[in-house]
Design a protein around this nucleic acid. Structure first.
Lengths: 149, 149
DNA sequence: CAGGATCCCGCTAGATACTG
DNA sequence: CAGTATCTAGCGGGATCCTG
């Protein structure tokens, strides 16, 4: 019989998640968040929030709440379907919260949860990396393609 | 006439990449790297490399070189097609190098370039995040699904 | 061993139209 | 404004067979 506490068991289980294994749930999660639109939505909702968690913000109020149409405009080229679909998935996973205000017409806002904010920091870096190394990658491609021709 | 140096111009151009814009090349790059298999390949090739770039490693020799079959085994469940395809794309973008050693049978190894290593650090954090917050996400999903039912 | 080539299914992402 | 519903084309991605 195990003498572990529940907390110990959960810590144990957490260590067992390994995205290298095909059946592991964490691989599905990795697949979910490894998505262009996820990266951009998190980036948009996290704009203006402190980049490093150290600065002791005013609690949860430091993430930007954005309306559906705002997001739609910010993420140029996204279809309503993908936007709604991705927002729903992120809401389901607890990464953002959806708030409906009964005005006329109705107002809906989306905001990062603390969990979502923690991922935002990482995703922001990915997006920044892509923008920062674009030149280098472009140069590499030219070289590769020239060599392959 | 601009009085900028070439370096200044390049810095200027770099700032102009914005993944929020539909036509921006950096969005395509973001799409490329926002991929489950990319994350796992980079994670596999970077295993054992120092997590923080500060520690002044022995130059470029601190990334692991892996063979095709090694990667295939490590990334449980990946098809040959996706593995080859993803490796080619990453090689083309200059994130990893492919080395052919003319033994019999031929030996092929893949290794991160410095550029790939810089992305590896970020991707590793994403993968680690997915594994670390799996429990929390799972709990959120249950709540969401119960409420929606 | 490390792929290349081919076939083909599925499901996703986009376009369009409609609604509370 | 903030979606839902429906249709469809396209291709992502797996399975299979073959090769230097």
């Amino acid at each position: 019989m195990p003498t572990m506490t529940a907390a110990q068991k959960r810590a144990q289980a957490k260590m067992n998640y390994d995205a290298f294994l095909a059946g592991c749930p964490s691989r599905q999660l990795l697949d979910r968040i490894s998505d262009k639109w996820v990266a951009l939505i998190l980036a948009a909702l996290g704009e203006g929030s402190p980049q490093r968690p150290g600065d002791a913000g005013t609690g949860t109020g430091d993430t930007r709440a954005m309306r559906y149409s705002e997001l739609s405009r910010r993420l140029a080229g996204i279809s309503q379907k993908m936007l709604t679909q991705t927002l729903r998935a992120l809401e389901r996973d607890g990464l953002l919260s959806r708030t409906v205000t009964p005005t006329v017409p109705v107002t809906v806002t989306y905001e990062l949860t603390p969990l979502g904010l923690s991922l935002h920091h990482l995703m922001h870096d990915i997006k920044a990396w892509a923008e920062a190394h674009m030149d280098q990658v472009l140069t590499q491609r030219e070289q590769y393609d020239r060599h392959a021709a």
